[in-house]
Simulated assay, not measured.
Amino acid sequence: MTSFASHLLAWFDRHGRHDLPWQHPRDAYRVWLSEIMLQQTQVVTVIPYFQRFVTQLPTLRDLAAADEDTVLALWSGLGYYRRARFLHRAAQACVEKHAGELPRDFDALAALPGIGRSTAGAILAQAYGLKFPILDGNVKRVLTRYHGIAGHPGEREVEKQLWQRADAHTPAERTADYTQAIMDLGATVCVRTRPACAMCPMHSDCVAYRDNLTAQLPTPKPGKAIPTRSTTMLILRDIDGRVLLQRRGEQGVWSGLWSLPEADDTDEAWRKAQRHARIDDAQPLTSFVHVFSHYRLQIQPLLFDGATAVHAIADNADLRWYPISELLMLGLPAPVRSLLMALPEPTAL
């Protein structure tokens, strides 16, 4: 075992996280689910989602048998909904091809939707104790600083170096604990800004600490200006308090989720609203901005109260009048869910 691994494991035994819900039991399904949820999301955010998810879908077969709306409803609020769709498809593939289990073969595991090299390694290391390295964002940050590797970690040559280092440090013994330990170190000590170097078991050999480069490493990705787009969301509410929802297409953000009909501006919003229902008036609600990773979306909600549904909607599988009280049963984008749950009381007719 390398000195890096032995020092890290000694630190983990005293200071690591040993009570995360996916560690008890630490089976392949729970490890896999946690790894997918933790992509671009912090542990403190993931824990309640994970617990709710495994309560309703406790096994891989349960996930495979669930309908997509159930899966997306459980995921709603975590964002990056493609992760949930890939999770669902991978579970179905496991039932069809792998007897309802996540395969222990690396290539078969990595071939499943949404499971890349690092996630496959994490599952095999943590669930089965097999020697496979991982390279998530926390591990990249630890290794970049420890070895003083310059260049954005997303660049091919830099990532290649990091994989080599990750593989060299991963021990054949206590692989599950080591994998958790290096993630914990990056998440709690070697954090993005103001790392707690004095508490780090590696600081005496860390190049970034030695050369005062912790603020410069990892090298940031070259910045790009984030554009702002705008949309008008139509909130058609009928006399029974139901709201018209529309399933989004398979392309773009929130793909496949139930959301609100949208228009480019108020005039188009009126035209769309009149196609869906008979309406009398509209009330602009407070606009707000939702930030995605690659752009900002300025949202102007427009409330049409007392709308009367037209019968044609019943013939469209992607349109649905839905009681607000039952929205938790659907996969909705988080800002849309918040918007609908905060609607003013219906205007008296």
Rank of each mutant, 00 (worst) to 15 (best):
L8S: 11
F12H: 11
F12D: 00
D13N: 11
R14S: 10
G16P: 00
Y29R: 07
S34R: 10
E35N: 07
T41C: 13
V43H: 02
T45C: 11
Y49W: 02
V54S: 05
T55R: 15
L57K: 02
P58T: 01
D62Y: 02
L63T: 02
D69R: 13
V71C: 00
A73E: 10
W75F: 06
G77M: 09
L78R: 12
Y81C: 08
R85V: 02
R89Q: 14
A93S: 10
E96G: 00
E96R: 15
K97C: 10
H98W: 06
L102E: 12
G116K: 12
G121S: 06
Q126N: 11
G129W: 09
G129M: 14
G137V: 03
V139S: 02
R141W: 11
H147M: 13
P153H: 02
E157A: 15
V158R: 08
Q161I: 03
R165W: 02
E173L: 05
M183D: 05
G186T: 09
G186N: 07
T193L: 09
R194H: 14
P195H: 07
C197K: 04
A198F: 03
S204W: 06
D205W: 01
V207A: 09
Y209K: 10
R210H: 04
N212K: 07
A215I: 00
A215V: 13
P218S: 13
P220W: 08
G223H: 13
K224T: 14
A225E: 15
P227M: 10
R229D: 04
T231S: 12
L234Y: 02
L234M: 05
D238N: 15
I239G: 01
I239H: 13
Q246V: 03
Q251K: 14
L257W: 01
S259W: 11
A263Y: 06
D265F: 07
R275C: 07
A277N: 06
F288W: 15
H290K: 13
H294F: 03
L297M: 15
I299G: 08
Q300Y: 10
P301I: 11
F304I: 04
H311A: 12
N316V: 08
A317K: 13
D318K: 12
G331A: 04
R337F: 01
S338N: 14
M341W: 00
M341Q: 14
A342S: 15
L349E: 09
